[in-house]
């Protein structure tokens, strides 16, 4: 006899996700978003090799070319191909956003695990620390941190991780606390299972879904934030083709050569939207109250 009515009661998260998105009856928007995310991730890895022109080659003769047969998305004021720069910039924007989310999730989950297992005073101390971080807007915090570090892609990633882990830590701690009160954790506690094993074997594996959801929701905001920082000039130093700095470079020509800023802007929008939709879909699949789960 099989009983498949409890939404949280399943084993393979990835399996359920793919079944929900690719199986019959999945929402079309979610599927499109997932396909888009797949394309973006592939482009983020192989994009630089697909570029039809050298993204950094300055060519004064071909400057400010509108989109056409030779330059599909036009060229900027120094004659660099916008499409090639978009492709070259994909890893800078998308992969660094992924790195930021992975980094802040690892730190956040670690701190949350410590806080959950720790005695009351240490838990309180850690949570007050995260609150101090959270009281500063993360964009401002990241800006300040990058200013202290030398401006480079690495320092942007470090600054963003530092700005984002407190939120993850707080949310994860609450998730873990809740999982710790479930009957199977209590059952293990009664058996005399050590606190460390309780965490690693029972609480963490059963909280992973909720942690994935938070991370996937965070990804789209991170893409926007990284581009925002690059736009403000604290990203990877020029001439790198970060999408945010591409918009900044095209600012002066926005009325005459709109394509320089428009296409990186669209790329950021599509990426943020696609990742955000997939994050939302993952959240809905996980939400036991949505009634659509399984």
């Amino acid at each position: 006899m099989t009983i498949d009515n409890a939404p949280f009661d399943r084993v393979s998260f990835v399996g359920v996700l793919s079944r929900r998105l690719f199986g019959r009856g999945g929402p079309v928007v979610d599927r499109l978003a997932l396909v888009m995310v797949g394309i973006l991730l592939v482009l983020a890895v192989v994009g630089p090799w697909l570029a039809p022109h050298d993204p950094y080659a300055v060519d004064p003769i071909a400057s400010l070319e509108p989109p056409g047969a030779a330059y599909w998305l036009g060229t900027d004021d120094t004659g660099r191909d916008v499409l090639s720069r978009l492709l070259a910039g994909a890893p800078l924007t998308i992969l660094s956003a992924v790195a930021v989310v992975v980094g802040s999730t690892i730190i956040g989950v670690f701190v949350a695990s410590v806080a959950t297992l720790a005695p009351r005073w240490l838990d309180d101390a850690l949570m007050r620390c995260t609150e101090i971080f959270l009281s500063i807007p993360s964009l401002v915090l990241a800006l300040g941190l990058t200013a202290v570090l030398r401006p480079s892609l690495t320092s942007i990633i470090i600054a963003m991780v530092m700005a984002l882990w407190p939120a993850t830590a707080r949310i994860t701690r609450n998730i873990l606390r809740e999982t710790m009160t479930s009957a199977y954790v209590e059952a293990a506690k009664i058996m005399g299972v050590s606190r460390l094993r309780l965490m690693l074997r029972h609480a963490l594996p059963n909280s992973l879904d909720a942690i994935y959801v938070h991370a996937s929701m965070e990804l789209s905001g991170t893409i926007v934030m990284i581009s925002g920082l690059a736009f403000l000039g604290v990203g990877a130093p020029p001439p790198s083709a970060d999408w945010g700095s591409m918009i900044a470079q095209g600012q002066d020509f926005i009325t005459t050569a709109w394509w320089i800023s428009l296409f990186p802007g669209l790329a950021i929008t599509v990426a943020a939207l696609a990742f955000g939709l997939v994050g939302g879909a993952i959240r809905r699949i996980n939400d036991p109250t949505s009634g659509r789960a399984q």
């Binding site: 409890a6 209590e186 059952a187 293990a188 009664i190 058996m191 050590s194 074997r201 029972h202 059963n206």
Partner: peptide, 28 residues
Amino acid sequence: QMIFQDPYSSLDPRMTVQQILEEPMLVV
């Protein structure tokens, strides 16, 4: 040892029956 009221929540959903049944012996 204890038997809980709700058998739907007292078994860890991410463990196989083998792992569930082994745990008390591993702990002891």
